[in-house]
Nucleic acid binder design. Structure first.
Lengths: 219, 219
DNA sequence: TCTGGCTCAGAACATACGTTCACTAAGGAG
DNA sequence: CTCCTTAGTGAACGTATGTTCTGAGCCAGA
């Protein structure tokens, strides 16, 4: 973690600011730094902070107490975070549709887990994006296995062939399938040669979202 | 995001602290809150902060300027972050092995991208963990497609059947395959019925790591 | 009606904290 | 040698900022 162009004192200050911020969730004062680094005067701290600021290591807000921000540590999750936290809201059946507790099942319950996905890696991720853990192997030919997590983006319109979270209103059941429009009915097609498609009327179907990503743990 | 048990003013204060902290990376002062929320006195802010603290919404460090920390907002990436940042270091051939520029190709180059993965979701993720983008479809039967990203964990020992990043020392080539020991030679097995395995001597093989996860973007 | 708790206003106080200034000391260039 | 830059010392200054005190209005319950 050593950086060129900084003398030991400046590195020490930089590290202290990072640790302090991590532990207490707010930056240190100049006098905090002074004491921690055994510096005799606040002016020395100020002097070295100027150097760190010119070097682009930190950003300072003048005349503001604790107005220090450490920049650009790429291993520090707090720095430059552009990702979005995506909750894993529950399970989705990739085989037979299964009933779920309530219609806003995925709105109320606590997430099973939470993922942090980088912006831009999977199209646009926003606050509506969520994830579901897949039960069953009906989408195996689409490379989605039992236990995988699918990232779901609520969308207004879907195209034929999209993998969607399909909600059957009458049956109050949800399932993960590919969607194809066929006249006034809709075919929900599994991606498994041993399974048959389901046909539903457009009225009965509500598309909760479209799968924009898949995440699998192989351990 | 509304929370029960809080009057509008307290909710407004809580939201302001969150937004302020997010934008400036340090918490606001009592007077910052006062102005932003149109409160006539600092004592009112202090009063309401006490209530928020008793309710467990924030933590305060007494006598410390900006000593406020918002607790338990699961959408705030900074709160309770336990994930690790994983760099996508380059490409890996899942088909024919391909030569790579240098032996420490994946150590020196800039990452193509960066992922933030939650601790615990994929076994143990540490600072050595990295990711590679897959070229080719030879692992298609293992549900790894062209363009997928595999999460790789350097390990000391591998078991037969593990999906590994295999480095052929003589050929200076890397490939993604399943590994099986067969006497004094090793079989590198694609997961694609149209492709044949590769046999190498144990001396010639260096296992760079084991695949512990797969991430796919379907948009 | 009185009382007590909740919420707030305004002001004053003490100290925390960033800034600045004058001065010192060690090197390097001319 | 002087002149300049880098690095540090110690103190003072002024504002920023958390704390506290007095008192008000409101409302439910005795």
């Amino acid at each position: 973690m050593a950086r060129k162009g900084l003398n030991p004192r400046q590195q020490q200050i930089l590290e202290f600011i990072q640790n302090f911020d991590e532990e207490r969730s707010y930056p240190p004062t100049i006098r905090d730094i002074q004491q921690a680094c055994n510096i005799s005067s606040t002016s020395v701290v100020d002097y070295n902070l100027h150097i760190l600021e010119r070097g682009g290591y930190i950003r300072r807000d003048r005349e503001v107490s604790r107005g220090i921000e450490v920049l650009g540590d790429s291993r520090d999750v707090r720095a430059g975070m552009t990702g979005t936290r995506v909750p894993v809201l529950g399970y989705i059946a990739a085989g037979e549709p299964v009933p779920v507790p309530g219609q806003d099942y995925w709105g109320a319950a606590e997430p099973l887990d939470v993922l942090d996905l980088p912006e831009g890696f999977l199209g646009k991720i926003n606050k509506d994006t969520y994830a579901l853990r897949v039960k069953g192997t009906s989408m195996i030919d689409a490379l989605v296995d039992d236990g995988d997590v699918v990232i779901v983006q609520p969308v207004d319109s879907v195209q034929d062939g999209d993998m969607v979270v399909a909600w059957l209103q009458i049956e109050k059941e949800a399932t993960l399938k590919r969607l194809y429009r066929e006249g006034d009915r809709i075919r929900l097609q599994p991606a498994n040669s041993t399974m048959e498609p389901i046909y539903v009327s457009a009225d009965n179907l509500e598309v909760h979202g479209k799968v924009v990503g898949v995440l699998r743990s192989t351990v």
